[in-house]
Design a protein around this nucleic acid. Structure first.
Lengths: 249, 249
DNA sequence: GACATTAAAATGTAAGACAAATGAAAATTG
DNA sequence: CAATTTTCATTTGTCTTACATTTTAATGTC
């Protein structure tokens, strides 16, 4: 592991890259302890604060964890799915919120991915997944539910569908797409009528999943996507007309 | 933005979280300049190195960028797709390399996702995408190609297929799945026979994409997935038998 | 042998200093 | 006056030193 002191790049960034590459290459294996900050500083010929900045960069990516005390230090972290989830959701949420992505594009991606795991879910879903879906449908039928709670329940429902595929990589990839859309979905005011419509579709989907009818799940997801986009467009249109009104007034 | 000095959590982690939350909540908008390190240190009542560690954490997630000089400072970064790609690939690669995921699971996820965008790609692919696919097929036919180069070309080919869907979110999601598998694929020795087989399937896929035949693309991807898994299993089996031999010897 | 004490090692944090980059204002020059 | 150069203040990048805190291990005591 070497760095170039003459480079214009931050030393801490270079050191972080060197260590990261070592981890990816397998030169540093899971749970292995890195040299102490003092030793690293000595090795790279930099000061301890610089080394620390590098380590914090790696910690931010969940690549290492640190422990204080005599036998403490920095250890290569076994990247868990929940950590990967969290990062994925943060990144996806930011991509969307910074308006680099339109609602339609995000929505299309989400349902395309979801439909990808529908056949697998039809095949492998357990009673647990079905129970979660039914429970969320029941929750969504409660009249007093806020829009936020309705959306959260929606996310849980779809997560159950995705998890039913029994493929952790798929679940992890989809977590970003589904959860990242929640803030956007929260902007939609769900009328009693639209909730009824969505719950009906959810019920049909749950039935199809129970019946292991992949083709039907796919068709229902297409309908749900169309309806979701329709709702979103209504919201945008309503907002636009309100703006126009303000302009003329 | 406040932190709890009595918490057991690192101050730098708390500060990073506070700023990150402010960005996600929209309190800090794109290209907005953060207070200088000295001002932040003053605000949070910590030292400058601690603030710097927090900022480096955010920089590692591409949430901010820093500039030196008089009008420099830390600025909220517009998260670009390429940055998100890079993180996604790193994370996915690590998830796989740390053996939390089997080859089969990763492969299944990859092809499920790829099939998800096949219909969209059939509809929207441009001549550019087709040209890339043809070029990579041509490259893959060269006999002198190393296994690594063959795999890299394979990734480019599939990326073109995915990009053909014209949905940046899909491309971004799939980049992780496809590229993360490359190290695993690199372990496979592609015989002349297997390369021939793969190139034939790639050619068929390119033809189907050109003909905008979504059903056929799907069927071909299923075949390609089955063949890929078959190859991987052969490698594992060969390695196992070699190990057994060593054991008896 | 059990328990309290101490020491050592490591990270976490602070404070101050200087280097280097950078842009803006001020001074100089044609 | 305009163009150019110089100066200078600001800000990040880095180093040094020091101390606080946490944790384990060794040591000593009963």
């Amino acid at each position: 592991m070497k760095i170039d002191p003459d480079s214009t790049v931050d030393l801490s960034a270079q050191i972080a890259k060197a260590i990261r590459d070592a981890i990816i290459a397998g030169d540093l294996i899971v749970d292995q302890r890195l040299p102490s900050e003092a030793e690293l500083a000595d090795h790279f010929d930099v000061s301890r604060p610089t080394v620390r900045e590098a380590l914090k960069r790696l910690a931010a990516q969940s690549l290492i964890r640190t422990q204080r005390g005599a036998t403490g230090g920095a250890f290569v972290n076994r990247l868990r799915f929940e950590d990967a989830y969290a990062q994925q959701v943060t990144t996806s949420t930011l991509l969307l919120s910074m308006n680099a992505v339109s609602f339609d594009v995000a929505c299309e991606a989400r349902y395309a991915l979801e439909r990808a795991c529908a056949p697998l879910s039809a095949e492998r879903r357990t009673p647990d997944h079905l129970a979660t879906m039914r429970a969320e449908i029941h929750r969504q039928e409660q009249p007093g539910l806020t829009d936020e709670a309705f959306c959260a329940s929606d996310v849980t429902f779809h997560r159950a569908l995705v998890d039913g595929a029994g493929n952790k990589v798929l679940s992890y990839q989809l977590a970003g797409a589904v959860e990242a859309m929640q803030p956007l979905m929260n902007m939609i005011t769900f009328t009693a009528r639209s909730r009824e419509e969505i719950v009906a579709l959810h019920t049909d989907i749950a039935d199809a999943v129970e019946a292991q009818d992949a083709t039907r799940i796919d068709a229902l997801l297409v309908k749900l996507e169309a309806y979701t986009r329709h709702l979103a467009h209504s919201v945008v249109a309503a907002r636009q007309s309100r703006k126009d009104k303000e302009k003329t007034a």
